[in-house]
């Protein structure tokens, strides 16, 4: 903070004013630093998920596209697909389909990392699919 007046006369007053101005500049600097650091905007990808299903009806099983994700690979309706070709393949399969026919059931292996999962689901959405998660049912071992 600014010190009091130094000395007396004109020189002292100048020093006093300079101190105040330095204070002001420093405070303004801190203000803008605080504002700038809190104004960082987050970016994210919205994902529409109708509902996570633990059980599927026979009808759903026959009509929906099923994408299975493992730790490093992906398959569509049981057929392995290179990740680079996934979007093109799904775009063809989803052509002309509208909600709810465009639902893509996503089944992930337990050890699938999030970074891999988010790429695959991004490709599905870009191809026009609506994602539904199929979760593995909990198993009760030894009653």
């Amino acid at each position: 903070m600014a010190a009091g007046p130094v000395g007396s006369g004109k020189g002292g007053q100048t020093a006093w004013v300079l101190n105040l101005l330095t204070d002001l500049a420093f405070n303004l600097l801190i203000f803008f630093v605080v504002c700038a650091s809190s104004a960082q905007e987050e970016k994210g990808r919205p994902q529409q998920m109708p509902s996570a299903s633990k059980e599927k009806t026979t009808e759903q099983k026959s009509t929906n596209i099923e994408v299975a994700i493992t730790r490093t690979a992906v398959s569509v309706n049981g057929e392995d697909v290179p990740i680079a070709d996934l979007k093109a393949k799904l775009t063809g399969m989803l052509a002309g389909k509208k909600n709810p026919e465009n639902v893509v059931v996503v089944k992930s292996a337990k050890d699938t990392p999030y970074s891999h999962w988010i790429r695959i689901t991004g490709a599905i959405e870009q191809a026009g699919g609506a994602i539904t998660l199929q979760l593995e049912e909990e198993q009760v071992i030894g009653k």
């Binding site: 337990k110 990392p113 999030y114 970074s115 999962w117 979760l135």
Partner: peptide, 14 residues
Amino acid sequence: HNETLASTFEPIME
């Protein structure tokens, strides 16, 4: 976190 496994993040989404 990008290395989180499906066994953790899928129940969260649900």
